[in-house]
């Protein structure tokens, strides 16, 4: 179950797949995938298993086929580090969606040289702006107009929810505060940066297949 927010009359859906979807623009937003992360560790001699790339791509693929999408924005940290073969596998996969426009707002991890992007339909920009006042970037931008909502990634927000019986859950979440909406990391092998629920912020936790707003007093 997705959670609907609205901004200047524009419907924005927070998806449990840890993505954001704006139907009017047929726009899907994905943040911090960190592809190539395991490969990067392996290249450095750390013997962890390889990523199951097909499974990873399928997570994007199923969104692209079940929703009407004409544009995908990757909010930075798409690729974890220097080039490894996982990048080529990824670009090959993107080519199977020629009808879709892919945009990357570059993040601190995206250090691949420009020629790696040259061959594919992935436009690299610093930020992307929609007429309704939505500004997409990897990290929050300063000096934005009050009417703007900055949609960002970078920190991998998460929240801790305490329930009775002294049990706590750590879950990825969307974090809205001061006109900045931070997306959870789409990448599977990423950590969480814990955000505390305060009176001036809103947290939307990803609980299995639902996105649920965290109430002031916890669940």
């Amino acid at each position: 179950m997705a959670k609907k927010l609205s901004w200047n009359g524009l419907d924005i859906f927070l998806l449990a797949q840890k993505a954001l979807y704006i139907p009017v623009h047929r726009l899907l937003v994905i943040s911090d995938w960190h592809l190539g992360k395991l490969g990067h560790f392996r290249k450095e001699g750390f013997f962890i298993p390889q990523m199951n790339l097909e499974e990873e791509f399928l997570r994007l693929g199923s969104l692209l086929t079940s929703l009407e999408v004409s544009k995908v924005v990757f909010l930075g940290d798409l690729f974890h580090s220097e080039w490894n073969y996982e990048w080529d596998a990824f670009t090959d996969y993107l080519k199977t969606f020629p009808q879709i426009d892919f945009v990357l707002t570059r993040g601190n991890h995206d250090i691949l040289p420009a020629e790696r992007f040259g061959t594919i339909a992935l436009h690299v920009v610093n930020q992307l702006v929609l007429a309704e006042g939505l500004v997409f970037s990897h990290e929050p931008l300063s000096g934005l107009d009050n009417s703007c909502l900055n949609i960002v990634g970078h920190v991998h927000p998460g929240c801790e929810i305490a329930v009775r019986g002294r049990q706590t859950f750590r879950l990825p979440c969307f974090h809205l505060e001061d006109r900045v909406l931070t997306l959870p990391a789409f990448g599977r092998w990423t950590g969480l940066y814990m955000i505390r629920k305060k009176s001036n912020n809103r947290l939307f936790a990803v609980v299995n297949d639902a996105v649920i707003e965290v109430p002031e007093s916890g669940l």
């Binding site: 392996r42 290249k43 390889q50 080529d88």
Partner: peptide, 18 residues
């Protein structure tokens, strides 16, 4: 194998080395 292939076996593109 963990030290040689970083796990079970090395695949074609993988560049694990130790």
């Amino acid at each position: 194998k963990m030290l040689l292939h970083g796990g079970k076996a090395l695949t074609a593109y993988d560049d694990f080395h130790r």
